[in-house]
Each structure stands twice: as structure tokens, then as C-alpha cells.
Amino acid sequence: MSTAGGAATPSGVIAPEGTATRVDPGPDRAQYGLAAVLAVIGAWTVVDSAGLGPGFADQAVRPAAFGYVIGSALVLLAVLLAVATARGDRAEGEAGEDVDLDRGTDWRTLAGLAGVLVATVALIDWLGWAVVGALLFAGAATVLGNRHWVRNLLIGAVLSVASWYGFYVGLGIPIPPGVLDGVL
């Protein structure tokens, strides 16, 4: 691994990197993508509404009515967004208490987390919460930058088994045990 996440700054200079890229960045291309997605969702909502029946006799508002209104509103908003983007409108990312927008987006970490979530979805019905929960915690913590994966797994296992019992016994929510049926 090279100097990902910030190269060595000379003699303790306290300034985040990447601030210099703010000079006329041109239109926010990604926003066109957002507009396209909105338009697709809106169009689909309208199409879906068109396929609905007239509804019951006592329904004063036809089931399709809201779909038409909301769907066309979405399409309209998508167009407005595209126009605004072309005129130089830029999205301002949400600057939370814990987010430093001056640093670029860390796609590697994001991709790792997405992978962990997809694996969770794929395995949860088969392996059950106690196993998948532990893997989820350990995987997420490791991807987020904690290298001690043995410790992460231990914490994850404790958390997931404890939460399983907590839900099953304490709250009366019977989470299926999965492969650990009979063990837990």
C-alpha cells in the first residue's frame, strides 16, 4: 500500500489536501445521472399507474391518481434539475459533524462496505443472524480501517450472539437461528 489517504506533509503543516481543486470545476456531471434516475422512476410510476384498474365504486380517489401526479412531478423535477445543472448548479455534499468534504471520496472503503452488505443479504437466511452478524461487524470494521481482524471477529461474535439472545429471550422476537439451530 502506498500513500493512500494523504501523503506525508512537510513539517507538521496543518492543512487538508485536495483544496486546490475548487477552481472552476465545470458542470456537476453526476447530477445529470441523478436527473436521469429521477426521470426513470417518475416515468415508471406513471406507466405503473396507467396499468391500474378504475378501483372500487366507493373510491373517490382512483388508485392511479396519486401515481400520475407524483410520477409526473418527478419527471418535471428531473428536467428542472438537468436545466439547473447545465446552468452551473452544483451539489453541495452534506457537511456533517464527522465529514470533511475537503478530502475526496474514498471509493475503496465504500466498495468494501457494499461488498459486506451484499454478502450479508446473500448469507443471512442460510447462516442465520448469529453467524452473519459477527461476519458483518468484523467485515465492516476491517474495511473501515481496523486491521485487527481477529479482535474484530471476537467482538462481532459476542455482539451477534448477545443480540440474538437479547431479541429471542429478552424481547420475545424469535430470530431464526440458521445453521446454528440446536447450538444456540
Binding site: 487538508p16 456533517g96 464527522d98 471520496t105
Partner: peptide
């Protein structure tokens, strides 16, 4: 996810 994308500071 949003914080993860801007994790280090």
C-alpha cells in the same frame, strides 16, 4: 456510508 467515504481526517 457517507462517513465511510470521508473516513479519514
Amino acid at each position: 456510508l457517507w462517513v465511510a467515504a470521508h473516513l479519514r481526517r
